[in-house]
Design a protein around this nucleic acid. Structure first.
Lengths: 340, 340
DNA sequence: CTGAAAGCGCTAACAG
DNA sequence: CTGTTAGCGCTTTCAG
């Protein structure tokens, strides 16, 4: 086993070389006022020459603080999450923080382990997008009980009061459906996500609201619940096509579902958007490149991460005791392309 | 500023409650043989009740080791890197390690800062994909001088001897061109990348080798150097189309270039693959979804990350002094779709 | 079986 | 201006 210690120069080493006390070196290196300029120069020079790097583990132990932020996401490789991570890293880096990245793999148990692990590492705060299967949020309550700042983004829970960054799903959905209505579509169906998830609920509400606003009656046959994947799109599409009258437009809970629909349309020679208009949600990079390019609601993934990081840093710096949890809703943007 | 310390239960707290010494609690909690079963149970019970979590900062300071791996990538949100990160995280998690993720933003200075930062945090090892603009690798030499295990992946440098994980670009290119030849194409052109980069050179060599093997003479007109973006594809395509005889197939240095070609084909009504076959490189998620789906050479991004993490862990565990640097070349996979 | 002591590297408080 | 001391939380001797 490697003994990292032997390879590192410490403040003691520098002090010994200089024939002074360690604390003097600390002060010199930190540019404290009550150390002579000469000492400072000597210390800096020797530190550089010896390749001294502060041991932040020791610093953290002594101060009781780290400059590390823990992040838990369900997946890393999905574009939405990697873009959010990118935003978090960017803000953290600029503020002198590093990020610990954990993936829950959409697994509740693993999310709990990740949380404990982060706590064990004394992180200054935690940013989370919860896994699909997390119903119990006890582990997050525990984080708060320990006074560790906590911010949720995108996948949030109503069961816990905390800072949150979400997208205005309802307004986004509503604008998508309104666009469909304005374009002349009359029979607009919705392929919804799992009914217990916030984003599904919100997008459904937006769909319903837009219909209502236009005076179009809600048709229960046109609402189909499913999951978040392509196959859910395929499946939903098949059920919809059996209906009479057939819907002439389809608002999907996300892009993969819309992709599934498009795939099936191609197979069955259903012309898009003439026979069926399709709208997605997320604006994954794929969907602007396919034929026809998908109309969809863009979520500002990078910005969500950046905002979450800023909120967390705020909480870390300005104390955690007296703040009032806030929910920031970012705006979506309707990307009108060729499927509507 | 939050005082994290006050919120945490320590081993001392447990010891006090139990009326024993801290060292006894440590031993009890770690299930050492020379502690009574009764003591162990009491300690475990109280630890749980008090919500004790080991302070890994203190543990690291005392042992001189961390269970943290540092990762530096040029970007987080690009699919290749996020997939690699996913692989790294997966392996690290299973082995009880956490990952510190840093983004260099393709910026040399930032990469240097990231490296120092990781070193300061006493990471057990570092995995890197270097930035486009890194010419000097002194900061990585420094890592090695400090006996910190170091593994490069994908973007590697010839200037430093270390463990590396790359893809067999040459064989990948060769297989793509061989496939074109087998499919009956005769006049195969190549849109190459910048001539000073390793991957460009290797892919070009693979192209030339496949031609030679089939006894097809190399035609200098059919080789065009460019960059890595869509516009380079558009530009290269235009030049190629002026040639007589026109090429009937085109091997592109990567997917975006191929995408540019496809775009232009659509515009000019060049039928793919009847009039022109097109092959890319990377297998970005986009290209399987476009119409027609692109034949391309898949790079195992996730696996590259996983392998890099395994190599690093190996180095961490089995000492770092006496090992011989190794370069692992992973196989690419030809994804035959509809453009050939 | 349990305890006391020492120390990882750093720094704040207090003395000199 | 510089030094001494003590302690962050944990663990590893070595004694009892």
């Amino acid at each position: 086993m490697l003994n990292a210690r032997t390879a590192h120069t410490t403040i003691k080493d520098i002090a010994k070389q200089l024939g002074v006390a360690p604390s003097t070196v600390t002060k010199a290196l930190k540019d404290y006022p009550d150390v002579s300029e000469g000492m400072k120069e000597k210390a800096r020079g020797l530190a550089k020459k010896m390749g001294y790097l502060p041991n932040s583990v020791a610093q953290s132990l002594q101060s009781g603080e780290t400059t590390t932020i823990g992040v838990i996401v369900p997946e890393i490789k999905h574009h939405f999450f990697s873009a959010a991570l990118d935003g978090i890293e960017e803000v953290a880096f600029k503020e002198g923080y590093s990020i610990f990245v954990c993936k829950s793999n959409e697994d509740y148990e693993r999310e709990v382990i990740n949380t404990r692990n982060l706590l064990s590492h004394f992180v200054a705060g935690i940013i989370v997008s919860i896994s699909q299967h997390t119903k119990d949020v006890g582990h997050f309550i525990d984080v708060q009980a320990r006074k560790i700042p906590l911010v949720f983004f995108d996948r949030v829970s109503d069961e816990i009061a905390a800072n949150k960054v979400v997208v205005d799903d309802r307004a986004g959905a509503s604008s998508a459906v309104a666009h469909l209505i304005e374009s002349g579509y009359k029979r607009i169906a919705h392929l919804a996500g799992p009914d217990y998830l916030n984003i599904s609920k919100e997008r459904l509400k937006g769909y319903a609201a837009a219909l209502k606003k236009a005076g179009i009656p809600f048709n229960a046959d046109y609402l189909i619940y499913g999951g978040f994947d392509e196959e859910d799109g395929v499946h939903g599409f098949k059920r919809l096509m059996k209906l009479r009258p057939r819907p002439d437009a389809l608002f999907c809970v996300n892009d993969p579902v819309a992709l599934g629909v498009l795939l099936e349309c191609k197979k069955r020679k259903v012309r898009v958007p003439e026979e069926l208009a399709v709208v997605g949600f997320s604006d994954n990079p794929v969907v602007s490149q396919i034929d026809p390019p998908l109309t969809t609601v863009a979520q500002p993934a990078y910005e969500m991460g950046a905002v979450a990081a800023k909120m967390l840093l705020q909480q870390i710096r300005h104390g955690n005791g007296d703040f009032v949890p806030e929910v920031i809703k970012l705006k979506t943007k309707l990307m009108i392309r060729k499927t509507t």
